[in-house]
Amino acid sequence: MAAAPGKPASAQAATPSVMTRRGFLSTLGVAWTAFAAACAAGAVATTRFMFPNVLFEPPQQFKAGLPADFQTGTVDQRYKESFGVFIVRDEQGIYVLRAVCTHLGCTPNWLEAENKFKCPCHGSGFYRSGINYEGPAPRPLERYRIVLADDGQILIDKTKIFAQEKGEWSSPDSFLKV
């Protein structure tokens, strides 16, 4: 609550060296408000400090090469290490499975001989499509957005996730027809 301008000046003119009660209280109010605001700003800034602007992580979108680089009937693991994805091609086209177990987040392995994904942590199993069929995983593996870039390469976008149980696997970007 700021004092009306002019008022304190006249009060001070009357009693030059004595602060009035009203002037003191309003100064106190301003001081505490400023102090509280400074503390709050400090707290916000400190919290923000914990969220880095630049991450030394692989980008969320990347180009994975031409569709012809992926053979029909294979589960491709070349970007499993670097980007955490399986790229699967079947007769209809290509889809990208997120290599994160839907149980508690470990990385499943593709077992070619048994034609399934198997999670090493608690043994969840998934079909080639990503559908879960054994172990504790409660839902299928998720798929990432896949589109063709202007240069004809496959563009994989990890910011968009398609979940089978929400019926999202039928949306056009979850699947690349080739």
Binding site: F51, P52, L55, F56, E57, G84
Partner: peptide, 17 residues
């Protein structure tokens, strides 16, 4: 990229941060 887990890990997954 900005939730509680991110603040804990300093990243989107368990890495250097």
């Amino acid at each position: 990229g900005n939730d509680a887990r991110f603040a804990l890990l300093g990243g989107r997954f368990v890495g250097a941060g």
